[in-house]
Computed example of a mutant assay.
Amino acid sequence: MASQPKTDLTVPTLILQQLGGERFKAMTGAASFAGDEQMLSFRLKASITKNRASGMRIYLDVTDTYRLELLKIRNFEVKVIDTREGVYAEDLQRVFTEMTGLDTHL
């Protein structure tokens, strides 16, 4: 039986830490985290977000900045409703709040 190659989760772990880690999860209700070598994705509660968004994907670009995609997910259909590019790590929480209306910390 062949083993599956392991995915390097360094980037999604770093993105979650930059968002605020466990405090981010508690403040936003984000859940169902997934990631790969260059991206973190998670679900949001549509009833409490701006534009009734239900998910987000955050990509690390080759320029060492982030691209954020705010999503509406319904009936297995994913629609990107807002995108921000060129976001620096220190601006990640602020841009997330602008896009979703959710605070990442007290």
Rank of each mutant, 00 (worst) to 15 (best):
G55C: 08
A53E: 08
E90F: 10
M39N: 12
E77S: 11
L68C: 04
T100H: 04
V11Y: 04
D91Y: 12
D8T: 04
L9M: 14
V11A: 07
Y66H: 09
G21A: 10
K6L: 14
I58V: 13
T49H: 08
R84C: 09
A30E: 03
A31D: 13
Q17N: 13
R84N: 08
A31C: 12
E22F: 04
R23L: 06
M99H: 04
D82K: 13
T65L: 11
R57H: 10
R43E: 11
G20H: 07
G55V: 04
G21T: 09
T13M: 08
S3I: 06
V62Q: 11
T10N: 07
R74L: 11
F33D: 10
D103Y: 14
A34E: 15
A53D: 10
Q18P: 00
E69C: 13
S32C: 07
T13G: 14
R94W: 02
Q4C: 10
V80Q: 08
F33S: 07
V62S: 05
I58K: 01
F24E: 07
V62H: 01
L19Q: 07
P12H: 11
L14K: 13
S3P: 00
I48K: 14
V87K: 03
A89G: 02
T97C: 05
E37V: 09
K45S: 12
V11G: 03
A31M: 13
G35D: 05
R67S: 11
R94K: 14
T7S: 13
M99D: 04
P12I: 04
T10I: 06
Q17G: 01
K25C: 04
A31V: 01
L71T: 03
M99Q: 07
D82H: 09
L60R: 15
I73C: 01
F33C: 05
L14R: 13
A53R: 05
M39P: 00
A53P: 08
A30L: 01
R74W: 08
K79S: 14
G20F: 06
K25M: 12
S32H: 15
I58A: 09
M39A: 11
T10G: 03
Y88Q: 15
D36V: 02
R84L: 06
V62I: 05
M1Q: 10
E85Y: 03
A34Y: 13
F33L: 08
A53H: 08
F76D: 15
T49F: 02
Y66D: 08
Y88K: 15
M1V: 12
F76S: 15
V80Y: 04
T7K: 13
Y88I: 09
E69Q: 15
I15R: 13
D82P: 00
L60A: 10
E90C: 01
L40H: 06
E98D: 12
Q38M: 09
T83M: 07
P12V: 04
Y59V: 00
R52C: 02
E77F: 08
K50D: 06
A26E: 15
R94G: 07
G29F: 05
I15L: 12
D103Q: 14
G101R: 04
T7M: 10
Q38P: 00
R52Q: 14
F96S: 07
A89F: 05
D8C: 10
S32E: 14
D82F: 00
G29V: 01
R23E: 12
L60K: 13
L9K: 11
I58H: 10
L44F: 02
D8I: 04
F76C: 10
F76N: 15
T63W: 08
G55T: 05
K6N: 11
M99W: 02
D61E: 14
K50F: 03
R52L: 06
P12F: 09
N51F: 11
T65D: 06
